[in-house]
């Protein structure tokens, strides 16, 4: 808000009133929708996480839901899965960085490449997920390629680790386009004189990448890291739903998917509310931790 300068011309009392009236009307749609359909529901979820709500009636039961959660072995499996899926974050950052750095070289057709790399981001996780599960079906496209190397059919989705790999691959493929654009946008603000000076000093391409580009875009890299960590915890639902349905067993079930099952399939709304709240607290902790761990970096990227 500090970038806003108050109007220089002194306004009459009547003008100020008018301005207030306009602001209230202009803010009304956003305020009503956000309050009514987000803030109040969040409050309801917080309240109901302390009740045994079944969707119809609810009684206050204190911390019982949270006790149940911490005594549920599946929760530990589910949390571990989410931590495993965090492997996708460095992979997405690496893929985004490679794509951005190479596009930035402005070789023949770089605009076309930039256009094409963005296609996965336009597709629904449902479409990406179904596509990947099709590729990895037993005897499917991937197996047919592997057969060339003398490998037989493999049940990719029937095996905990290979199923996780398929989900991670789908996620990386779907996410790197956005990362690339964010990094390209940051790179375009780097002063080209820096590169020229480095080139005169005889710095290699690799050296310039390490010493100029990456430090200059570290704010954006941090932003991407935060966004993708949040995404891994809160938005894998669609991928998991279509690729593995959480299986085999619970080996690819994420917190958001498990909350969906307990809430909307089993009707345990109070318990689901507690789970949803737990998910929020995890995301909040991870976000704060990431911002605190690299506080100096954010300063560089004042937008």
């Amino acid at each position: 808000m500090e970038g806003r300068t108050p109007l220089q011309t002194p306004l009459s009392q009547r003008n100020r009133k008018k301005r207030n009236l306009f602001s209230y009307f202009a803010l009304l749609p956003a305020a009503v929708l956000v309050l009514g359909l987000m803030v109040i529901p969040i409050g309801a979820t917080v309240w109901h996480s302390f009740t045994n709500w079944d969707g119809v009636s609810s009684t206050f039961i204190g911390f019982k839901n949270f006790e149940l959660i911490f005594h549920n072995p599946i929760i530990y499996q589910v949390l571990t899965n989410s931590l495993i899926f965090l492997i996708s974050v460095p992979l997405i950052l690496a893929a985004s960085l490679v794509a951005a750095v190479l596009v930035y070289e402005k070789v023949l057709g770089w605009r076309l490449f930039r256009f094409l790399f963005f296609i996965p981001m336009v597709l629904s996780p449902v479409i990406v997920g179904v596509l990947f599960s099709t590729f990895f079906l037993p005897g499917g496209a991937v197996d047919q390629v592997l057969r060339i190397f003398g490998l037989g059919n493999f049940s990719w989705l029937g095996n905990p680790w290979s199923a996780r790999i398929v989900v991670i691959l789908a996620l990386v493929w779907a996410s790197f386009g956005f990362g690339m654009v964010v990094l390209l946008s940051a790179m375009s603000t780097v002063d080209t004189a820096l590169y020229d000076a480095a080139a005169i000093d005889g710095a290699s391409w690799w050296r310039r990448l390490r010493s100029i580009t990456i430090p200059m875009i570290s704010g954006s890299l941090q932003f991407l890291s935060v966004i993708n960590v949040i995404y891994t915890f809160t938005s894998l639902f669609a991928f998991v739903y279509v690729i593995t349905a959480g299986g085999p067993g619970f080996s690819t079930t994420t917190v958001d998917y498990y909350t969906y099952i307990t809430t909307f399939e089993n009707g345990q709304f109070g318990y689901g509310a507690a789970l949803a709240l737990l998910l929020f607290l995890i995301v909040l902790t991870l976000t704060v931790a990431q911002v605190k761990l690299f506080p100096h970096r954010e300063v560089q990227q004042g937008s």
Binding site: L37, I42, T45, F233, T234, F264, F269, L279, F280, V283
Partner: peptide, 14 residues
């Protein structure tokens, strides 16, 4: 609330 998990909001709304 920008990065609030969707389910936190959706549960009571549903």
């Amino acid at each position: 609330i920008m990065f609030m998990p969707g389910i936190v909001v959706l549960l009571p709304l549903y």
